[in-house]
Structure formats: structure tokens, C-alpha cells
Amino acid sequence: MMTRVFALLFALLMLPGAGRAEEVVAALSQSRISITANFDGSEILIFGAVKRDQPTPEGEPLDVIITVAGPEKVETIRRKDRRFGIWINVEAQVIGHTPTFYTVTSTRELADILPPLTDSLWKITPDKRILPGMRGLPAREALIRLRKADDLYRTREGVVTLSEDTLFQTSITLPSNIVEGGYTTRIFLLRNGAVIDSYGTTINVQKVGIERWLYNLAYQQALIYGVMALAIAGLFGWGASEAFRILRR
């Protein structure tokens, strides 16, 4: 019993990743997401197991927290106020790197399994992950509120299923208004309010096919793209007038 307590303390004190009694092994249903013309969001299945070289420890149950963070972006946030009787933007503030998407899922209520200190150390909940240094500033709170309203920042408690203290799985829905880039996925194993192991991987989200081609053309060959847009419009206008002339006859 004493050795077990010591082992636990040891694990608590150790830096993450070293000397682990329980390890997480995980996989994703897909590590690459392609934005095609009919892309309408995507669901990723995340599953895994806890690998042990000794019997399951007694006491507090095991918990799993999974986070997915989208690519980071510098954002401009504006505030409206009443001027001359109408509501206009009066103030703009540039806010540093924040993920365009962030989701936290867990086996149980975060309040029960994640003490604030552990949360701060690993930056797990949105409050600790998104600009914690700016807490209380109206612009930061508004950014989180707006992203939550758009369902881009989410906390889903109790949606990770864990069976036999060994196998876990969950699914994460990526929205359709997704930003291209790397989506960092982190999986945490927790016991007694401490992270005993973590695992990280990246999901790549990319436009493909005609989406990729048009996007690149619009940005890299803007003039050609513009001419093409006009040509399509002109041809279509002419085609429509001809088609209906024939139809009317």
C-alpha cells in the first residue's frame, strides 16, 4: 500500500511523460480531413486504450479528457456604441493568437476531475487555454462568448465513454465553417486530479480539388481569377439569353 502511495506521489511530482505506470495509446478515425465542394462538417472518432504494466490502481477512478484545438489566428474585435443616434463600431482591438476552434470533452464533469491547478498547468478548459493572461478584459470575454455562440468553443462533459478503466472513445464534430490547418488533439489520463499521461497528435484539414484550385487562383493569380469570373458571368449571360430565345420560339 505504501509503495503504491509513493508511486502515485512520484507520478504526481514527475514531469509528464516520464516513468509512467499507465500509458495512453490512441488512434483517430482519420488524421486528414479534406474540404471538398460538398463538405458539410466532419465527425472524427477518437478511441484508445490505457496500457499498464501493473494492476489497476485502487481508489479514485481513471478519467479521460480530450481536447481539439484549431489553427491559431490573430483576430480583430470591435465594439459598437451609440453615436449620433445609431450604433456604429467605435473601438477595435487586435487580439493575439487564439485557436479558431476549441473543444473539450471528458468522461465526467470537469469540476469533479480537474482541479484548477492541474487545469492551469495543462491549459485544458477554454478559460485556461484562451488568453488566460487577459482574463476579465471585456474584449477577451467577448471573443470567447462569440466563439461559443458560433459553437466554435465547446465543453462537452461526460461524452467520452470509458469501459473497464481501459478502453475509451468519443466522437468530435468539426463544423462546416472550418478553417484550414492543423488541429491539435490532446488526450489526458487523469487520476486523483492529476494528469498521469498525455498523448498528442494533429489532424490536418485542407481544401482539395476544385476548392483548393479556386482558392489558390483567387489569392495567387488574382487578376486571372477576376477575368475568369467575368468570363463565366459573360458567357452565362449570353447563354441564358440565347437559350430562352430558342425556348420561346
Partner: peptide, 9 residues
Amino acid sequence: PPKELYSLG
């Protein structure tokens, strides 16, 4: 008066 005073982008 708008419901949300802040906007992004």
C-alpha cells in the same frame, strides 16, 4: 441597440 456589442473579423 444590438444584442451583442462586439464583433469579430
